[in-house]
Amino acid sequence: MIYVNNAATTWPKPEGVYQQINSCMRDFGYNPGRSGGVGISRIERDIFNVRTKVAKLINAANSSRVIFTSGATEALNLAIKGVLRKGDHVITTELEHNSVLRPLRKLEKSKLIELSIIQIDQKGRLNLKQLEEEIQENTTLIVTTHASNVIGSIVDIKRIGGLAHNRGITYLVDAAQTAGVVEIDVEKMKIDLLVLAGHKSLYGPPGIGVLYINEGIELDTLIEGGTGSDSLSTYQPTILPDRYEAGTLNTMGIIGLGAGIDFVLETGIAQIRAEELRLTKRLIAGLKKINDIIIYGDLEMEARVAVVGFNLKEIAAADLGYILESHFNISVRAGLHCAPLLHQALHTKKIGMVRVSFSYFNTEEEVDIILEALSKIANNKEEFGL
């Protein structure tokens, strides 16, 4: 099978990720803070080391402000619901995933917040002038993705971070599609809250995410419970990271994430990005030559990540995706990608979109096979029942 659904989760993982998870599970998979000292020192030390690796990856000064979660969705919910108060105004964008939109819509529906949504143009680019104009006296939070999970468009988070910082507004960035493939510096980019998905371009396993909380940002808790610390108190601890890590940590997920970050740092973010964009450029060049293919988003390589959204004219994305998998053994993502406002803006909400997304482990040969398959389908629609 040719797997090009890496924006959903990267696969395969680096060999070191499999090895570290296996070793953890077999050799020292104890519960940190709850094992009475039996083998606990190693697992606690290893978890601390992974926090340090995350901090290094994003240039964060204090690794204790790296919070492990079950994924980016939980991290976004913790950030959004933890920072907002009744009467606050929030600005977000049409590029966002439902992991951002649904928590915000719930708060808006409950009349707890006011919400403004910044539009995109037909290339998926944000109107940053509109964003600035939407700022109100009660604007307390700006939330943006770093890159679209549908069309790959990169958002200028450094510019937005500077704007938010100058206006005293908290800035939350969803870096699920960029961490590990685009450089992120929370200090230079003035990011207050940063969310990472461990299982995508950081090459960790599913079920692990990260929320980084910058100094000076205070969040309410999303859940409370045992932390293995301050156990005589019936109140949630105030120290970080314990305050936001109630319950048993996903130890195997954290260890796997650490191995994934090792791979990213050893290979080099610039090298990974260059390789993925080389494949993206080859794919887009080939798509342009195929009859009736429509490509979405900004086609300039430096303005995107290795996520390409396209359609075959007047053909439902789900039908094309099914044919690619059933006839050619090519795994893509077809549908609405949990990004309803983007599809509304690009007029694809009825038919969806086919998405190809690369990782460091895809090849030119695979790109050429995909293009050949799409060309056959486009030139022989009746043969494939279209």
Rank of each mutant, 00 (worst) to 15 (best):
Q236R: 09
K158L: 12
L341K: 09
L342V: 01
E215S: 15
K350I: 11
T140H: 14
P12V: 03
L115S: 09
M1Y: 08
T227S: 08
G71M: 02
L202E: 08
T139V: 05
T348M: 12
V38I: 14
D27E: 09
T178R: 04
I284F: 07
L336E: 06
T69N: 12
Y360W: 09
V54Q: 03
G168K: 13
A317L: 02
I239Q: 12
A303W: 02
L341V: 05
L101Y: 12
S229Y: 12
G256Q: 00
A345V: 03
T178W: 02
S201I: 06
I142M: 10
G225M: 03
A246Y: 03
D292M: 11
T221L: 04
G162T: 09
D121N: 14
D88K: 12
I169L: 09
I269N: 10
V308Y: 02
K13Q: 06
K111R: 15
T144Y: 06
L257Y: 00
P206S: 15
V66F: 02
T9Q: 13
A79H: 09
A373V: 12
S99D: 15
L324K: 01
P32H: 05
L277A: 07
G33F: 02
D88T: 11
T93C: 14
G124P: 08
K281C: 12
L279Y: 07
V4Q: 02
D46L: 03
A285W: 06
Y244T: 04
T363D: 12
T348F: 06
K281F: 10
L312V: 04
I261F: 02
L257H: 00
D368V: 13
L202K: 10
G180T: 04
